Simulated scan of single mutants.
Amino acid sequence: MYSSELARLTVHEDGTASGRFLGGQISFMLARPQQPPPLGVLPDLDQGDEHPALLGADALNDWNTRFVAQLAAPRTQRITLDRDGRTEHVLIDVNAGSWAALTETDGAWTVRQGGPDRIWDAIEDHVNRWREHGAPELDRFTVTATPNGHTITWPAN
């Protein structure tokens, strides 16, 4: 979703590394191997399970919120479509075959989701937990890298 940060990590004797993001809404041009996969044919956005959204797609206009959202759905791409006289905000994970489409009517948001994962439910849960912890700035997040992968955490108040 193109919200990125730069981290300064310290490598420890055991080969792990940890540190914090530097903040500042840093953006990078992606290298070819980092490019998202082509969208291909979009799923049928009229299908799927529909329910009221607790969080609107407009929340993703904020850099920090979008960064936290992509922690919950890291392979998700975001597009906007004008369809049937309304704007649909579509999140799609091409590899998993999961998608979410959000629309706004009179200030209320609705989400329709399909595929094996409920992308928007995961994003809402992650963003709401971050907000419950006071929505700390990204430079307070901790990054830990090990041979088995990496984790990103934020302080709990």
Rank of each mutant, 00 (worst) to 15 (best):
I79E: 10
A17L: 03
D125Q: 13
R86E: 14
L45S: 07
A72C: 14
D125A: 10
I26C: 11
P33S: 01
A17W: 00
D121F: 04
I123E: 00
A53V: 06
A145G: 05
L54S: 13
H150W: 12
P52A: 11
A100V: 09
E104W: 03
D93M: 00
D106T: 13
E50H: 06
T153A: 14
R118D: 12
T142A: 11
R140L: 15
P147R: 10
T153V: 13
N95G: 14
M1V: 13
E88S: 08
G97Q: 00
N128G: 03
H51E: 15
Q113S: 09
N157S: 14
S3D: 07
L60I: 09
P36I: 01
R75E: 11
E50N: 12
R83I: 13
P147G: 13
G115F: 03
L39W: 05
D125F: 10
D82A: 10
A100T: 07
A57R: 00
T144M: 14
Q35I: 08
H89R: 05
V68E: 01
G115D: 07
S98A: 09
S27A: 15
N61M: 11
T153F: 05
Q34I: 09
T80A: 04
T110G: 02
R112A: 07
T65I: 09
Q35N: 14
R86D: 14
R112I: 08
A59D: 05
A57I: 08
N64R: 05
R112E: 09
T76M: 03
D93P: 09
Q113P: 11
D49L: 13
L45I: 13
T153Q: 04
G134C: 07
L45T: 05
E132K: 14
Q70C: 10
A135L: 05
W120I: 06
R140P: 09
D121P: 10
T146R: 02
F28Q: 12
G85L: 03
P36A: 06
D139T: 12
N64V: 03
A108G: 14
I123K: 00
W109F: 07
F141R: 02
W63E: 04
A101L: 04
P37W: 06
T80Y: 06
L9E: 01
H150V: 09
P147D: 14
D58Y: 02
A7F: 11
P38S: 03
H12W: 03
L102T: 00
Y2L: 13
R118V: 06
L30E: 14
F67P: 01
L22W: 05
A135N: 03
S4E: 06
T80E: 08
E124W: 02
G97L: 01
T146G: 12
S3Q: 09
R8E: 15
S18P: 05
I123D: 01
F67E: 00
S27E: 15
L81A: 09
A145S: 08
A101H: 02
T76D: 02
D106Q: 15
P43G: 01
P74C: 08
N148H: 15
I123R: 00
N128F: 14
W130L: 02
A145L: 05
H51R: 15
W120G: 01
V11R: 06
E137R: 11
L91I: 05
H89T: 06
V11P: 07
W120P: 05
H51Y: 15
P52E: 03
G134R: 00
